[in-house]
Design a protein around this nucleic acid. Structure first.
Length: 687
DNA sequence: CCGCCTCGAGTTCT
DNA sequence: CTCGAGGCGG
């Protein structure tokens, strides 16, 4: 970005942040909108750090509730109110520990004790007590100079007006908060009265404290939690941060009960994980955990760099939704020739991992989102794993965004692309479609070249994965193909050690491994073999149905070529699958390919009809991670007992087997009243 | 013909 | 996990 673009971007960020701050739509969960707001704020802060010339004191980020800054008295803090360095991962924490241990004298460094506490998401304030009386309260401001908000703070019940302190003067630092519940009640009231709704507890708390009218502040039912105590006397050399918390409690301040002294980083991480579970139900908004070196003596050794202490760090829980910019939209070509648009982002941290791309599925989806290249988008991880574009922030547009267009030719081979006719021929056997209607076509675009390189490569990968030949990943396959070792997938089975070793960067050992693995996996049952062929509409499930019905490849092929009625009688096989099978098995190329596979050593095992197993008529859905077996194994065991395994929960599901960290399927199961089995119960059923 | 349920196919990152 | 599309019952 050049400077002009940066300035424009800053402007856009400011207006969008202001927009979000003023109101939000009810159908968005507040906590999620909050993440988006934070994400934009973070970007703005970073840009301003790089380009300080665009700082603007009157800009929305420097104002609260739209009111200018100068209505309160400015006060100077006795000691700077520090901010904290962030850690976004356990690795960041480990790096932090490494840094501080290097700085500590060797003997001390080995026995660092940490103190963990909740990081509240509110407004940091400083309270001064002189001779035990609350005399002045101030906001953090820039750390050096804050605003005198004493009158408003006095309306907060959990701030004691007097404390029993020996020292002439003490300063208590802590966070002004509004509970999530109070915000909900407030928003309900505002909604009834047609007023705009508040975005999050932090903003209302901050806004309320900076109201001129203390009465209004009082109505907002704010709370205060203390976390630091500064005494006029030098801190006792032997004191601990945890000890200060105790003192604060004794003075009558709220101090959150989720705190712990940890002997090492492992215990710190344990604390973080424990609080993460409590966090959603915690009455106040939090964004992480603060970890401090517990001994004040060591804190002094470590000191402060810039505006953050070295002896403290804020672990931030990963945001569930963040914003990023779409750098490009690429088009992938799949095994079937489907062209799938893929959004490429500026790599961004979401829910704990860095995400660089997300599928956009198809052009219809792009249109629904109204997504253009250059857009600022909100992304999340569906089921905590798969990145997904949730929304486009259209207000962030500059006008330079480019619309996404499906290319008219395949990006790999240059052949024409088109949509496919679907469902037009209601039955391959019976009379074709009505002609008065337009033929229905697919949403997806397809590359029409049967020999498209991309298609072949995807097919190679598919076959290898069905055969479970793990040694051959996409990279190696591509290499073999480019180097002329293989021309079609069946060539994999005749690769020799010498062939592979002749390539650069392939040693004796790895060549041997590959050949051995291929030889090991060349036996395959009929169901998997059919699946591996990659017949249109014949996936894992349908292939198994067919295999069980026919038992041998020969019988299936005969039927597909000249006895279609039998195939059509099979459950779950309709006109589309039927047509696809007929076309596949009457094509000479395909027949030759099957012959070549067999000739090259592939052994297809017959499949027998199994019936009357213990799990007959039972349908299972697996979710989460099982401790005693992989999901693949669990599936095989269920199938071997005549049960069925399905990917999604419906009212037809008999049991959902829930492992550790079960996902949304568990929720649907509970909603539909489907029985949920623990791994133990499942084991018992298996016997 | 419509709506529900499955299946197929494509996809991300550690 | 998600979306599209095939299969099938109402």
């Amino acid at each position: 970005m050049n400077k002009i673009e940066v300035e424009k971007r800053i402007k856009k960020l400011r207006s969008e942040i202001a927009h979000l701050r003023n109101a939000y739509h009810i159908d968005n969960a507040p906590s999620v909108t909050d993440d988006v707001y934070d994400s934009l704020t973070r970007e703005l802060k970073e840009l301003l750090k790089q380009y300080p010339e665009f700082e603007d004191l009157n800009a929305p980020e420097n104002r609260v509730g739209g009111k200018p800054l100068d209505k309160f008295m400015k006060v100077t803090h006795s000691s700077r109110m520090l901010s904290l360095n962030d850690a976004f991962s356990y690795d960041d924490l480990r790096d932090w520990e490494k840094r501080i241990k290097k700085l500590l004298p060797p003997r001390l460094g080995e026995e660092v004790e940490y103190f963990c506490e909740v990081k509240f998401d509110g407004l940091a304030v400083s309270l001064i007590y002189k001779d035990g009386k609350f005399t002045r309260g101030a906001t953090r401001g820039d750390g050096f100079i804050g605003e005198d908000v004493t009158q408003n703070l006095k309306t907060i019940k959990s701030i004691p007006l007097t404390v029993d302190a020996k020292e002439k003067s003490i300063e208590v630092r802590g966070e002004v908060l509004m509970s999530k519940k109070t915000l909900m009640t407030l928003n309900k009231k505002n909604e009834r009265e047609g007023k705009s709704l508040f975005l999050n507890t932090r903003n209302v708390a901050a806004g309320s404290i900076r109201q001129l009218d203390p009465k209004l502040a009082q109505e907002r039912r704010l709370d205060f939690y203390a976390y630091d105590l500064i005494k006029s006397l030098e801190k006792d050399e032997n004191s601990l941060h945890s000890g200060l918390h105790q003192e604060l409690k004794n003075f009558g301040f709220n101090v959150d009960k989720h705190e712990a002294i940890c002997k090492n980083l492992k215990e710190v991480i344990h604390f973080i994980e424990k609080f993460e579970k409590v966090r959603p139900d915690f009455p106040f908004g939090t964004d992480g955990v603060v970890i401090s070196v517990n001994e004040i003596k060591l804190q002094k050794v470590l000191g402060v760099v810039g505006k953050a202490p070295r002896y403290m760090v804020a672990f931030k829980y990963p945001a569930e939704r963040v914003t990023t910019i779409v750098k490009d939209v690429k088009i992938n070509v799949g095994r079937t020739g489907v062209l799938t648009p893929l959004a490429i982002f500026e790599p961004t941290l979401v829910a704990g991992s860095i995400v660089g791309k997300a599928t956009l599925h198809n052009m219809d989806q792009i249109e629904r989102l109204d997504l253009r290249i250059g857009d600022t988008v909100v992304i999340e991880k569906a089921g905590d794993v798969i990145p997904k574009v949730v929304e486009v922030l259209t207000r962030m547009r500059t006008g330079k965004e480019k619309k996404v267009k499906m290319p008219s030719v395949c990006p790999v081979c240059g052949t024409k692309v088109e949509k496919k006719n679907i469902g037009g021929k209601r039955s391959y056997l019976k009379s074709p479609k009505r002609s008065d209607l337009e033929e229905p076509v697919s949403v997806a675009y397809y590359c029409t070249n049967l020999k498209c390189q991309a298609k072949n490569e995807r097919y190679l990968e598919h076959l290898v994965s069905v055969f479970e030949i793990y040694e051959l990943g996409p990279k190696i396959l591509r290499r073999f193909k480019d180097e002329g070792l293989i021309t079609d997938a069946s060539d994999i089975f005749t690769l020799t050690k010498e062939d592979i070793a002749s390539l650069e960067r392939f040693g004796e050992k790895s060549s041997e491994n590959i050949v051995a693995e291929v030889k090991n996996k060349r036996k395959i049952n009929l169901g998997k073999f059919l699946w591996a062929l990659g017949i249109l509409h014949v996936g894992e499930e349908t292939a198994r149905d067919l295999a069980v019905h026919f038992g041998t490849l020969k019988k299936l092929m005969f039927s597909a070529r000249q006895d279609l009625a039998e195939i059509e009688s099979i459950e779950n096989i309709g006109p589309a699958v039927l047509q696809s099978l007929h076309i596949f098995f009457t094509d000479t190329g395909n027949l030759n390919f099957i012959e070549k596979l067999k000739k090259n050593g592939v052994i297809v095992e017959k499949m027998k009809k199994k019936k009357g197993g213990k799990f007959a008529d039972l349908q299972f859905v697996l979710t989460g991670t099982l401790a005693t077996m992989s999901r693949e194994i669990a599936k095989e065991r269920i199938l071997s007992l005549s049960g069925k395994v399905s990917g999604s929960v419906s009212k037809n599901t008999s049991y959902v087997v829930a492992g550790v960290e079960a996902g949304s399927k568990l929720i649907t199961a509970q909603k539909l009243g489907v029985k949920v089995l623990s791994e133990q119960e499942f084991q018992n059923m298996l016997g």
